Amino acid sequence: MTLTLPHAPGPRAFGSAADVTADGATWLTSAETYPRRVLADWRARPHEPAVLSCGSAFDVVSVPAVFGRRMVDRLWHEGPGSGPVALHRGRVLLFAAPGTAQRLPSLLRWEEWGSAVPSLLCHGAGDAVTVPPLARGDHDRHGSRWVVAPDTRSPWLPGPEVVLWACVRAARGTAEPAVGISIFPSGDQSAKVYDVSRRR
């Protein structure tokens, strides 16, 4: 699979918070029916979370926090990076390309490692999500903060294949290491093995 490089900055330390830029806030509210009103209300209360619609500007994949952290680590250290990422009430919110919420569950059902992925909540068309405040403040009160904050009007967003790749990598990374089984007794590791199959 060919992965496109993102235009977003790398994540900060996972527990730290980042601020949304003016362009990032404009992009986040662009999915709303009345984006200017929503943006004005949000800017008037920049330390409060907001509820935004999914499906047109972005989809959101919500993952349990520990597994989500592994996914983000894989995306940034082995893959193409991520779009905006937030923490909200014990879950990681991965912002993804529109259509990801519809396609990802079926891709996971077909994937060998899909059963090792914890429950994902995929928010797409017709759904809404609570996102962290625009600016850092008393974010612990809300249990909400940006890890990779939106900083442009057109951020790179991973599609369903990239999110699937991160899910599989994170699941494989948490699996128990394979147990090595030898056909030799422990004291006879240097024994010679001969091919006794009949050649035709």
Rank of each mutant, 00 (worst) to 15 (best):
H77P: 00
V147T: 04
A170C: 08
V163R: 01
V117R: 02
T130E: 15
P158K: 01
A128N: 03
R169D: 10
K192E: 11
S119L: 07
V162G: 03
A116L: 13
V148W: 00
G126P: 08
A178S: 10
G114D: 07
E112L: 11
V85K: 02
R141L: 12
R153N: 11
G159S: 06
L121H: 11
A170F: 04
S154D: 14
P132Y: 09
G124F: 04
G90I: 05
R153P: 06
R91N: 04
F184T: 12
G137V: 00
Q189C: 07
A116Q: 11
P177G: 05
P185L: 14
V129C: 08
L104F: 05
R103V: 13
R153L: 14
L157D: 10
H123L: 15
S82P: 02
T130N: 09
A97T: 09
S186I: 09
L87S: 01
Q189R: 15
L108I: 04
L87H: 02
W76M: 04
P133K: 00
R172N: 11
G159T: 04
H123S: 14
G124Q: 07
R89E: 15
G126T: 07
T100R: 01
G187K: 10
A135M: 05
P158E: 01
R145Q: 02
P80Y: 00
I181V: 15
H123Q: 13
G114L: 10
V162N: 02
V148M: 01
Y194G: 08
V148D: 00
R169P: 00
S82E: 05
S154K: 14
A125N: 11
G124H: 07
Q189M: 13
A86H: 06
P177A: 08
A175G: 01
L121V: 15
V147M: 00
A170S: 12
G173V: 01
A149R: 02
H77Q: 11
D188L: 14
V163N: 00
D151Q: 12
A175M: 11
P132A: 12
